[in-house]
Amino acid sequence: MTRPEEFQRRSHLYRVCREAGAQWRAMNGFGVPAHYGDVGGETAAAARLAIADLTALPRAGYKGWGMADWIRDQGVSLPEPNRALRQEDGTLACRLSSGELLLLADDDQAALIDRLGHAWSMDDAVCFPVPRADASARLVVTGDDSAAMMAKMCGVDLRSHRFADHDIAQTSVARMNVIVLRHDRGASLAYDLIFDSASAVYLWGCLVDAMAEFGGRIVGLNAIDALRG
């Protein structure tokens, strides 16, 4: 049986996931929870209410007065602030302000993120990289009840008719600064949460507590992939 310690990289949450019975697979150099022993049940739960740890997925950030110019030169299409736009290779470009961008990949094929990493140099002084890969954690809350559950933890109205797919709210969730991105998986409502990785265990605990009343479950990446279809 694979153990998370066999991998070079691990999420801040690996102990918590191990305790919950995670079965591990390799991705992007990480050991990630593939499932918790009940793939069918987890996939069904993900459509109702579930959380998963996506910290292993590639991401990057760029910031500065010259960010927009530089990033357009690299062939990236930019959305308005607080919106995300899907790029050709599937990467989501999340505009956090006029001068800040966050890039999120949904699998380990992170062509755009790798290309930008190689293209950037110190000479592009008005645009600099933000260390998102290690400093941030990423979780996802999926399913029909996710908006109702998030309402317990967050003051922004995230209901699906008020907060469209690819809308972003940079706000407070369980008293922490969190970037909330609505990013539906297939037909399922889903919110990705990106936040300071040092508080991952705390926020995970809050989510587990908040979803209990709705019968939510912790699921592996396989269930999330199944939703994406």
Partner: peptide, 17 residues
């Protein structure tokens, strides 16, 4: 809660500021 109209983020709880 008191709401602050943020020029970037729109109306938000004042505790975020």
């Amino acid at each position: 809660m008191k709401i602050m109209p943020c020029p970037l983020n729109g109306p938000r709880n004042i505790s975020e500021f």
